[in-house]
Design a protein around this nucleic acid. Sequence first.
DNA 1: ATGAAAGCGCTAACAG
DNA 2: CTGTTAGCGCTTTCAT
Lengths: 337, 337
Amino acid sequence: MMGRKVTVRDVAAAAGVSTATASRVLTHSTSVNPEMARRVLKASSELGYTANVFARALRTQRTDTVGMVVPSISNAYFIAAVEAVERELADSGRSLILCDARESVETEAQRIELLVQRMVDGLIVVPVTAFDSVPAIEAAARQGPVVLFDRWADAASTDYVGSDNADGLRLCVDHLRARGCRSIVYVGAKPRTSTAYERHKAFRELMGPADGADGADGSTLLGEFSIEWGVDAARQLLGRDELPDAIVCGADIIAVALLGTLREAGVAVPEQVKVVSYDDLLLGQLTVPRLTSVRQPIDAMAAEAVRLLDERAGRPDAPVHKSIFRPTLVVRESTGR
Amino acid sequence: MMGRKVTVRDVAAAAGVSTATASRVLTHSTSVNPEMARRVLKASSELGYTANVFARALRTQRTDTVGMVVPSISNAYFIAAVEAVERELADSGRSLILCDARESVETEAQRIELLVQRMVDGLIVVPVTAFDSVPAIEAAARQGPVVLFDRWADAASTDYVGSDNADGLRLCVDHLRARGCRSIVYVGAKPRTSTAYERHKAFRELMGPADGADGADGSTLLGEFSIEWGVDAARQLLGRDELPDAIVCGADIIAVALLGTLREAGVAVPEQVKVVSYDDLLLGQLTVPRLTSVRQPIDAMAAEAVRLLDERAGRPDAPVHKSIFRPTLVVRESTGR
DNA sequence: ATGAAAGCGCTAACAG
DNA sequence: CTGTTAGCGCTTTCAT
């Protein structure tokens, strides 16, 4: 429906050259007579020429477009990631096509397939799960460059950019201990994603071998990365005989909901309970009190993801590369003044 | 880089028919001998055939793809709109390409241009501004179907789907008056967008002809649809001799920030000041107290937008259509129990 | 350095 | 109903 009418032919004719020469000028491919080049450029701009992307892609097998699939566009952390990647791509004149997997492995597979068909030059994926997302990702990786972002998928032999979750959790626990907290509870997500898995594992290791079974002593509560779970977990804690000194949340989205629920119940944060979280979303700075949270260097991570994509495009058989960034802790009022 | 190798030719050969017949089967265009059809389908699935989108688009001039440009993907209201449109399109087997204008008219123009080039079958735009966005929108509308969503752009002769902002504001003010509020302040955005303009205008008309000049009596404060402005406006109000009975916010993003700032300063909401807002985001249900807010029927609006796009594709010269939906007020704790 | 011509993979006329 | 053929608009050999 939508589309240009002006073609290279028109430009060539107007400039009095062959379509080949016109194309050469327009794509800066080979050197051409300056005078002809001038005429082509003039004709091109006068006619308002824009190359038909489909014809070009059909011919060159490239699109200057990168695809990105995230688990949910309503999670602000992924939006921040998308924005960072888009900024990065803009620098090299490329654009991003964004797809939402809606937390469904099936939708995710469809979206990945869609993007591969659209011949994106590369694909950045934040997998919905660590296991079930693997087949679609591997199929895509067979066709071209794929980089996993933030979460890895098990056994997927693709490049990866993420941050050190164990270190992030260590920052949380060290900070709380320095403020005198003894009893600490972790409220996170079930280990269906690599981030949920790593953060939970790190917490348990940091807390010592006290509990053997999976949170049998009540020091860890696992649900989803969602508002609902934050509310639910808070209620569970409120139902206990006594509250812990501090709560470590696996993500801001959980923490914000948990915080609201605790305060609604009259619990003073940070006086009675301190709360620390992960992601450092703007959202966490709107709460009262504002959240102490682990920040990942998302711009650097986005840049690295694009770099890996380009590197892989150049050397398809290079060994798999994993880039792990160090997070930092941003201290705010939720862990005391 | 990424792309299929299997072509119609391969499928046709494997099925022992011509490419034309194979194509006919694969696109369900004309009726074909059932036996041949069976063979083609079998060959197709055995070879793992997928049509090359570019070749198809080049030939058919269609892509089964709709483009959407929003002012900012970090504003949860637009994300909700995107999700609704995507759901709607999925029903008819089409997909959405999303672009972020980053609150910049220039970026917006680029993105619109990019999508038009990509020959999307239609374009849904939430314009960054009511005036400066017009040229890019009109240029796109000359190429194919365009529907403005939520915000209209001045003099753009394109179809539009939105909601009745005057009615929404009336709901707010009526509700507050029913709860006994006398002094009411409006905190909104400068009239650079149609929604900001209409909400502000409606508020002033509802409050009577008391103030002539633009908020000269301090009953309206105008800034941006942003966190920062919410904080700033709250501080301005806190600096006054006395607080109003109630505050009407032009958007939840403003209200959430304003609410946090008021409560941090020890102001009791809703006891001292009631707060009502617009958009009914999930965000507003995480605050303490939860926000009373105007909800727009976003799913119905998305469905209508897609319908208008399709209608326009069928009849390019049909008169311009504007669809205005009625909002409702969702009452929560921020205006009293 | 330039032009003529050959396709990229697909679908729509046009004959049969 | 089926096959042959001609492009969609572009880039890129291959000659010159």
